[in-house]
Simulated assay, not measured.
Amino acid sequence: MGWRATVVAAVLAIGSALSTGPAGAEPFPVPYNLFVQDEFTNPGGSAAGSNDWSCRPTPEHPNPVVLVHGTGANRLNMWTTFAPLLANEGYCVFALTFGNYADQPYPVSAIGGMARAEDSAAQIGDFVDEVLAATGAARVDILGISQGSVVPNYFVKYLGGAAKVDKYVSLGPAWNGSALTGPDGGATILGLGTDDARGVLPFCQACLQFLPASQFIAKLHAGGLYAPGVTYTNIMTRYDELILPYTSGYVEAPNATNIVVQDGCPSDFSDHLALAASRVAAGHVLNALDPAHPRPVPCVFVAPFVGG
């Protein structure tokens, strides 16, 4: 076994050891491990604890939580940790697959975040309306990761979402885009445009829109990034290998809180994806969604790629 395989095996073993809590302690098992997946046994399904359309919010948690995945992910494979965790906490939890080619056969139909960001934002807005109508709630909270940390804000700012969203929590946010290299994120070097990928990357029409010099990123910042009346929390990791630099998600404002997980927990080695299965990130998320009842955020070892 080569050294790379040895390192990967060790990371997986540690992640597995940290993956779950006591058996039977909660209605839904919460795997803190991204490799615990139901995608192939439940294709097109929803993560445990999510999309129960009979759920009614409680006075303790009056806002349903809408989960918004990242590029190439979907409503199931990105949320196998947070959907059951939030449901166990008493939230009504809903998740959609957006920006996918729904008319294509599986598994192509399960690859989300491909459409242009403006179209995905409208799709997210329609889903929020469905959640509000089904639950009777006045507003929702958003929990997004990666592309899903940014696109809903277009709905908030430009498609009437400011009156429908209360708390907006982002994991690995890309508010200023993600740079490949150079001031425009590598678009000039690669000979690509900075916004319209339809002629260059037709399968992923959103991809170039998250370069720092894109028109989409500029429009998000026009008149101020954040919408008044919405409370934002940005949760970042120094080891983010997809949002470059990781401080792309660090934007100050009176209605925004910026958190770098290593500031409070040096043993957290989350990379970008591991934020979706991290006990440390989960502690910050729970406090952001329920700031009236803060709890200590755990500090544990979190493995890159896996979580913990």
Rank of each mutant, 00 (worst) to 15 (best):
A102N: 14
G160H: 01
G144M: 08
K157W: 01
N33Y: 14
D166V: 04
V131K: 00
N77H: 12
D141A: 04
A117F: 11
F155E: 06
G72L: 10
Y154A: 15
K167I: 08
P152S: 02
A95L: 12
A117E: 14
K164L: 09
E26P: 07
N33Q: 11
G24W: 11
G72W: 12
P59M: 12
V140I: 04
M78C: 09
G112K: 07
G24T: 11
A121G: 00
N51Q: 12
A133G: 13
G21D: 00
K157C: 11
K164V: 08
G136A: 03
Y101R: 15
Y154G: 10
F40H: 08
L67R: 07
V93I: 06
V151I: 15
V165S: 01
L96Q: 10
Y158K: 09
I111R: 03
D52T: 04
D119S: 04
R116M: 11
A121D: 01
L34T: 07
G49S: 06
L76S: 06
T135N: 06
V68C: 03
P43L: 02
A47H: 09
T97A: 00
I111G: 03
A110S: 12
P62R: 06
F40S: 10
M114P: 05
F40Y: 05
K167Y: 06
T20W: 04
A48V: 10
T97H: 00
G125L: 11
W79E: 09
I124V: 14
V93Y: 07
L85G: 02
L132S: 04
V65D: 02
F35D: 13
S19L: 12
A122R: 14
N100C: 08
E26R: 08
V150F: 15
A162S: 14
A138V: 07
Y32K: 09
N42F: 09
V128L: 05
P27E: 01
T135C: 11
N153D: 02
P59L: 09
Y106E: 09
T80W: 10
K157R: 14
G45I: 12
A122G: 12
S120E: 15
Q104A: 15
A162T: 04
T41A: 07
L143V: 09
I145L: 12
T71W: 05
P84N: 14
A133Y: 13
P152G: 01
E60L: 06
A73R: 15
G99W: 05
M78E: 12
F98P: 05
G49M: 03
G44F: 06
Q147R: 08
A163V: 12
R75Y: 03
S109D: 01
I111P: 00
A47Q: 06
G70P: 03
D129T: 15
L96E: 10
P105W: 00
E130W: 10
I145W: 13
A87R: 02
G90H: 10
Y106V: 14
G70R: 12
D166F: 05
A133C: 09
Y158E: 13
N153F: 01
D166C: 08
P62D: 04
Y106L: 08
S120Q: 14
A48S: 14
A48C: 09
S146Q: 01
G136W: 00
Q123C: 08
S149Q: 03
N63M: 04
T71E: 03
S19I: 09
S120K: 11
G90Y: 14
N42W: 08
P29L: 05
S50I: 08
T58D: 04
I142C: 00
M114T: 15
G21M: 02
A23P: 09
A133D: 13
G112S: 11
R116G: 13
